[in-house]
């Protein structure tokens, strides 16, 4: 017998999956920014994720009301709420990066430096891992993601102090902003990892 709440959770997982794919897509688009994609496209994705987040929120409320979940179910419902917000924020930061580049009238490959390029790849693989950990409810992956977040944090800090002394014009400002947003995206990946641990173990 399948539990009624499981049917609702399946629906919820579909939404979260779609959100993950979209969030990943928004990071991918950044890499080809200006050449193939525009800030407008990234805004569309971000808007879509906001709607999906609302949808997930409503579904979770409905689940709470209808099934009064407990234990793992309760934790998953609560975490799904947070995760949907994190995914939305990730897409929103991608859009913010695009906006920053747009404002400065830059394409990414025009002035991007190796550190930033490197970080984009890292964050992308981090998000990939996060989604994988979420689907598999994988404790070890979640812990790995939290470690990766610390690496990214450190990279941002180093880049920040480097930028303080380096006078490099608009390219350097754009790069710093991108580093800043990437660091935020990594934070949200780490939050998701926390939620995954919470669902699995009942503690963070």
């Amino acid at each position: 017998m399948v539990r009624l709440i499981d049917l609702a959770f399946q629906k919820l997982e579909l939404i979260l999956n779609e959100m993950s794919e979209e969030a990943l897509k928004s990071l991918d688009m950044l890499a080809y920014f200006k050449k193939h994609h525009t800030a407008k496209e990234l805004k569309e994705i971000s808007d879509k994720l906001r709607k999906l987040k609302e949808e997930a929120g409503e579904l979770i409320l409905e689940i709470l009301v209808r099934y009064q979940p407990m234990a793992t179910d309760l934790r998953f419902a609560k975490s799904a709420m947070e995760i949907s917000y994190d995914l939305y924020r990730i897409s929103r930061y991608s859009y913010d990066i695009a906006l920053a580049l747009d404002e400065a009238n830059l394409s990414l490959d025009e002035c991007i430096d190796a550190d930033v390029q490197n970080n984009i790849e890292k964050v992308k693989s981090m998000l990939n891992l996060t989604i994988k950990a979420m689907l598999e409810r994988n404790k070890d992956l979640a812990i790995e993601i939290k470690n990766m977040d610390q690496v990214i944090d450190k990279a941002y800090k180093e880049y920040f102090y480097k930028a303080l002394v380096y006078k490099g014009g608009k390219c350097s400002i754009a790069n710093l902003l991108i580093m800043r947003y990437l660091e935020r995206i990594a934070d949200h990946c780490a939050y998701i990892a926390d939620e995954i641990l919470f669902v699995i173990k009942g503690s963070k």
Binding site: R3, P69, M70, A71, T72, D73, G202, S203
Partner: peptide, 13 residues
């Protein structure tokens, strides 16, 4: 919210 025992988890869920 955080039952320790698997049976408890199963029962309340």
């Amino acid at each position: 919210t955080y039952p320790k025992n698997e049976l408890t988890e199963k029962y309340v869920a």
